[in-house]
């Protein structure tokens, strides 16, 4: 399994990572070698084996529908790069 540079750029875009040309080439190699490693999986027959998502196979617990939290906006906004009027600010979103 060998990735093309185009593939790397597409993945990086999906993952929102800025890559320059040099980065893209490096990742092309390093991702390909990981995928080669991962390719070993295809050697084993897993027909009829159910995928396992959680080691314990427990079931979801339910929370009572009650409001337990108070307004902590100021504490929550304190880490934000840019805020105004209680809002997080980001570069203009165009729909």
């Amino acid at each position: 399994m060998s990735l093309e540079k185009q593939d790397v750029l597409k993945i990086a875009h999906l993952a929102r990572l800025a890559l320059d040309d040099n980065d893209a080439e490096q990742y092309q190699h390093s991702l390909t070698s990981v995928l080669d490693l991962v390719e070993q999986m295809q050697s084993v027959d897993t027909d009829g084996v159910e995928p396992l998502s959680h080691p314990l196979e427990a079931k979801q617990r339910l929370r009572e529908d009650v409001v337990t939290e108070e307004n902590r906006r100021e504490a929550f906004l304190a880490n934000a790069p840019q805020t105004e009027a209680g809002l997080f600010l980001v570069p203009k979103v165009i729909d």
Binding site: V38, M41, Q42, T46, V49, P51, L52, S53
Partner: peptide, 14 residues
């Protein structure tokens, strides 16, 4: 081919 396969192998390992 990747994620589900890995999860199936996960079960075998368990």
């Amino acid at each position: 081919a990747y994620y589900l396969k890995a999860q199936r192998i996960r079960r075998l390992i368990k």
